[in-house]
Design a protein around this nucleic acid. Sequence first.
DNA 1: TCTGGGGTCCTAGGACCC
DNA 2: TCTGGGGTCCTAGGACCC
Length: 339
Amino acid sequence: MVILHADADAFFASVEQRDNPALRGRPMVVAHEVVACPSYEARALGIHAGMPLRQVQRRWPQVLVTGYRSGAYEEASARLFEVFRRFTPLVEPGSVEEAFLDVTGRDRGDPRGMAAALRAAARAEVGIPVSVGVGRTKLMAKLASRRAKPDGLVVVDAELEARVRPRLRLDELWGVGPTTYEKLHAAGLFVVADLHGLDEDDLKRLVTTAMARRLVSIASGTDDATIRLPGPRRSVSASRSLPATRTRSKVVAVLDGCVDRAVSRVIALDGPPRLPRRLEVLVRYDDGTQVLERGPLDAPTVDPAALRTAAGHLLERTAYEWDGRGVTMVGVTLPLPTP
DNA sequence: TCTGGGGTCCTAGGACCC
DNA sequence: TCTGGGGTCCTAGGACCC
């Protein structure tokens, strides 16, 4: 198997730098109240996603700031995936900016050459840098692209994989987050080699069934190399961060805006219309806590007025939280019924 | 300073049916 | 009067990804 993991570098920032020469080579961020995507020049200063914009501007006044241009990112993403699909129909999207490609049998025995061609095509046709990792499994390709960043190419061949795999730290594994790692760590397991000799039942005492299975396959080198083609969208959501506020009317106004954006994206989906039957409202406070409320709609609908009303009711259900803390983010999710 | 604005998937438990 | 096992669907809650 030859799997490529193609990953656009600092995607939003790269699109902005492509479209505005004044931003090229400069530390810049795409941000609203907080940083969504810093350019690599900004990352070099220590700026990362999630940092409050105010703090960035105070510490690094030279950093340039742009707002979001969602349309431009969607268009760049669509063109990027057109390039991917020219290399193989077996493309599994990971997000708007990255994908796994199965190019087994299409690379004429030269995976590096194929990966280089993919990078060149993305640069020429979309105008943004794309790093590519090549491996025998999705995990290996993913780890390779991480090493390749920014704007690079890393090939993990069988020899390199044999050396690297046992030494991988468990918290580096794609799919192992803080919670799982904490459990493994507490059991004295730190790297892949520590899993040798443990079977699925042993690991199930520590982690969930699915995770235990994955870990066993990673230890034995039989982990996933299967491309899963995208199915219909499961949900559409929109959220917005805001300066901490205790003014309810402001929160409601921002929430209404989120509802409208989510609705327009549901309507824009390809295929027959899919009407949400439920609604979710998420609120985050300035102490970092989050509350999620969800419930059924009176009837399936994409009518913005009806959804705004329903969202307002769900927001009310979080009312016990209106205790002096400020609201820093609100969002809505519309789960979509499977067609 | 510990996260943006998106998403997916897994699991447990209840409802309902045969 | 008491009790089955099996299946499907739905929802809540979490973990994880970029």
